[in-house]
Amino acid sequence: MWRHVAANGLTFLIVALFLLVGVVSWGAGQYRAPGPLAEAICFEVPQGANMRRVAQDLEAMNAVSSPVLFRMGADYSDKSGLLKAGSFRVPEGASMESIVDIVTRGGRSTCGTEVIYRIGINRTTVDVRELDPVSNQFVEVASFDKDEDAAPEGYLSVKDEIGTSFQVIVAEGATSWQITDALGKIDVLEADTTEVPPEGFLAPKSYPITRGDTVSGVLDDMVAEQEAIMAELWPNRVNDLPINSPEEALILASIIEKETGVAEERRQVASVFVNRLNQGMRLQTDPTVIYGITQGEGVLGRGLRQSELRGETPWNTYVIEGLPPTPIANPGRASIEAALNPDTTEYIFFVADGTGGHAFATNLDDHNQNVARWRAIEAERADGG
């Protein structure tokens, strides 16, 4: 009899094991299978939420078929403790496995409202935009000049909301004073410093920020980014450049940055200055004169006077030999690359050509002809032609 009971028990255990394996296999399949979501949504994970709360919210939005399986899958993959607060785009038909990955992988929010502070040469603008999860395209909510316009309701209503993300975009060629001043006026940052970093040592690019970050912390990030760029690019410079240090490379790059906004001619402009330095010619570039007047604190807002072109400042390259003592702005990566890898040309002159770019010349006669053409264009525009 006991043998019969043992045999029945073993049979029961085998059946139970097969059933368990089948249930686990079914659950794993459901966890990885396409979900019921009919169209993409923005899903918000509140600060302090747990996986149970998230699973319930996802079920209410018809994004998951089983909150229990969702939690079990998150636990099994050791991701339950990695939940990140924010607003995330969940695509149509997303599996429970992919949703767990979306809400635990970290990084910036991928959905919801985004506020962008654009620090430019002349002004700081603010753009508020919201992602349409279905089209995966941003829709503009508000846009205004930070210094001249009153903040619109479209900005005031979202800047303190949980889930709103922020970024600062710094334009190439902005000065350290302009950047520091603009950061101090951004109301989601803590204005803990007015100390201006050295000119040229802030990398112009996009930086994610969060409410409560400090101005000094954002500036530190910009310095670290510029240091990383220089550490990468300086060892790969071409031979026989008339610059002897990364600091001098930043000076030259800043002049290139201020002289042209046309990406395709940066290396040509760089070749002019490299040729002039190699030949012992003065650089004679207007942006350095302007920096000597403004010290980077704002824009001049008018043309240069002849007395200013002759005036002696450490930055006036019509007067001094070689490079000025500091950069005159914060150059972007492309201008640094141009300074370290200029085109090989014989150009020693350039002047505006009326198209936004420049006409280059290897000798004074050709340059004077280019200047005459530019003056004619200026005169025609002044006459309204």
Score class of each variant (00 low, 15 high):
residue 2 W to Q: 06
residue 6 A to S: 15
residue 10 L to W: 03
residue 10 L to E: 02
residue 12 F to V: 10
residue 14 I to T: 13
residue 19 L to K: 03
residue 21 V to H: 08
residue 24 V to I: 11
residue 25 S to A: 13
residue 30 Q to K: 13
residue 30 Q to P: 03
residue 33 A to V: 03
residue 34 P to F: 11
residue 41 I to Q: 02
residue 44 E to M: 05
residue 46 P to Y: 14
residue 47 Q to F: 06
residue 56 Q to F: 08
residue 57 D to T: 02
residue 57 D to K: 09
residue 57 D to L: 01
residue 59 E to W: 07
residue 60 A to G: 06
residue 67 P to E: 10
residue 69 L to W: 03
residue 72 M to P: 06
residue 84 K to Y: 10
residue 88 F to C: 07
residue 94 A to E: 06
residue 96 M to T: 00
residue 99 I to A: 08
residue 106 G to N: 14
residue 108 R to W: 15
residue 115 V to W: 14
residue 115 V to R: 09
residue 116 I to G: 03
residue 119 I to P: 01
residue 121 I to M: 12
residue 121 I to F: 15
residue 128 V to W: 12
residue 130 E to K: 15
residue 131 L to I: 07
residue 133 P to L: 08
residue 137 Q to P: 07
residue 144 F to W: 15
residue 145 D to L: 05
residue 152 P to W: 06
residue 153 E to N: 06
residue 155 Y to W: 15
residue 159 K to M: 11
residue 162 I to C: 11
residue 164 T to C: 08
residue 165 S to Y: 13
residue 168 V to C: 13
residue 174 A to R: 03
residue 179 I to F: 08
residue 181 D to V: 00
residue 181 D to L: 14
residue 183 L to E: 05
residue 184 G to F: 02
residue 188 V to Q: 03
residue 189 L to C: 09
residue 192 D to S: 10
residue 195 E to C: 02
residue 195 E to D: 02
residue 197 P to F: 09
residue 198 P to L: 07
residue 199 E to L: 06
residue 199 E to N: 13
residue 206 S to C: 12
residue 207 Y to V: 02
residue 208 P to D: 01
residue 209 I to K: 15
residue 211 R to C: 01
residue 214 T to S: 06
residue 214 T to C: 05
residue 217 G to P: 02
residue 218 V to C: 10
residue 227 E to N: 14
residue 232 E to Q: 11
residue 236 N to M: 09
residue 240 D to L: 03
residue 244 N to M: 09
residue 246 P to S: 15
residue 246 P to G: 08
residue 248 E to H: 15
residue 248 E to F: 09
residue 263 A to H: 05
residue 264 E to T: 07
residue 265 E to A: 13
residue 270 A to W: 03
residue 277 L to F: 05
residue 284 Q to L: 06
residue 287 P to M: 00
residue 287 P to N: 05
residue 294 T to Q: 11
residue 307 S to T: 04
residue 309 L to C: 14
residue 309 L to R: 07
residue 310 R to D: 12
residue 312 E to R: 14
residue 313 T to V: 05
residue 314 P to C: 10
residue 319 V to A: 12
residue 323 L to G: 02
residue 324 P to V: 00
residue 324 P to Q: 04
residue 326 T to M: 12
residue 327 P to S: 09
residue 329 A to P: 00
residue 331 P to N: 05
residue 332 G to Y: 09
residue 334 A to G: 01
residue 344 T to C: 14
residue 346 E to H: 11
residue 347 Y to K: 03
residue 348 I to G: 01
residue 352 A to Q: 07
residue 355 T to Q: 04
residue 358 H to C: 04
residue 362 T to S: 15
residue 363 N to E: 05
residue 370 N to V: 00
residue 370 N to F: 09
residue 370 N to T: 00
residue 372 A to W: 06
residue 378 E to R: 15
residue 381 R to Q: 10
residue 382 A to V: 06
residue 383 D to S: 11
